[in-house]
Design a protein around this nucleic acid. Structure first.
Length: 284
DNA sequence: CATCATACCTGTTCGC
DNA sequence: TGCGAACAGGTATGAT
């Protein structure tokens, strides 16, 4: 019901840059060692120089050759509180579990009294300290497919779909094929492209491949425009929720009338273990 | 190698 | 109303 995908992680990245770049981490407090690996001391006293995103992974680079790498998976949150964030929106404890409470696993204490809390109710996510030079050697990052907005060419997209008979929705969500797309945007992109999610990827015709390529970019751009989708746990570091959940095309709309073929209701089935929403009147 | 199923978690929703 | 079952889904891992 929620899920951070490219637009959500990009929104987090942009805010973290605002609050973090140029500041030092005085102390990295590890409250839950299970989701953490590496040595917190490696970044203590170092200054953040940049924040990057690889697919759905966030990377904080420091000026001493180390980085913090984090995958927030489903329910991870980075929440900032500090002097350069005035009047943060009230965050209900229901959404965050509170700051510094049982769902807070890591706290970054900054040199300006600011704090960044890593919260994660379900603890699927992880935080690691590694050498910056080794970030791209992390297995998950190394295996990532091209970024939708830099690297994923139409040629690569055609290749990616033509080489497998797996369901097209499963393929565009496969992070080793292309990075950043998860369940919400996959559902909406396939609706926009008028393609049935369960079609074998290699059964798409040239025009359909083009339509899906364009639709994927369009829904991701739309997601970023609204600052991501907040259904359950997604909030940006200042505590704001995104708005895309109010603008989905078919995701989460089982039983509602299709925005395209208005006499048809959106249906839901499971595909690859995930909720899949589609309009049989539009998607063939 | 390609594909599929299950585990990891816990809060919320659903069905009886 | 209460309570257990089902569900939510990104990814690692093991099975087929």
């Amino acid at each position: 019901m929620l899920m951070p995908e490219l637009p959500e992680v990009e929104s987090i990245k942009l805010q973290l840059k605002r609050y973090f770049v140029g500041h030092k981490v005085e102390n990295l407090e590890i409250k839950n060692p299970k989701i953490f690996s590496g040595n917190p001391k490696d970044i203590e006293g170092a200054m953040v120089t940049d924040i990057r995103r690889f697919g759905k992974v966030l990377v904080f680079d420091f000026d001493n050759g180390y980085s913090v790498v984090s995958h927030i998976k489903l329910t991870g949150q980075f929440l900032y509180r500090g002097p350069n964030l005035k009047n943060p929106p009230e965050i209900s404890k229901k959404v965050t579990g509170g700051l510094g409470g049982s769902h807070t696993h890591v706290i970054f204490h900054l040199d300006n009294e600011g704090k960044l809390f890593y919260n994660d109710v379900r603890r699927f996510g992880w935080v690691r300290v590694v050498k910056t030079a080794e970030v791209e050697q992390i297995d998950f990052i190394k295996k990532l497919g091209p970024e939708p907005f830099s690297g994923l060419t139409m040629d690569k997209f055609v290749q990616m779909l033509s080489k497998t008979r797996r369901a097209v929705k499963v393929v565009i969500m496969d992070q080793t094929q292309m990075s950043g797309v998860g369940n919400i945007y996959a559902n909406d992109a396939l609706f926009l492209a008028k393609i049935d999610p369960k079609r074998p990827a290699n059964s798409l015709e040239g025009q359909e491949v083009k339509a899906l390529y364009d639709a994927t970019h369009e829904v991701l751009e739309n997601g970023m425009k609204y600052g991501g989708a907040s259904e359950l746990a997604f909030v940006t570091p200042d505590g704001r929720e995104g708005g895309y959940q109010n603008h989905t095309l078919v995701y989460g709309k089982e039983g509602q009338l299709c925005p395209g073929e208005k006499s048809v209701k959106i249906q839901k089935y499971m595909l690859g273990g995930r909720g899949t929403y589609w309009c049989p009147g539009v998607q063939k």
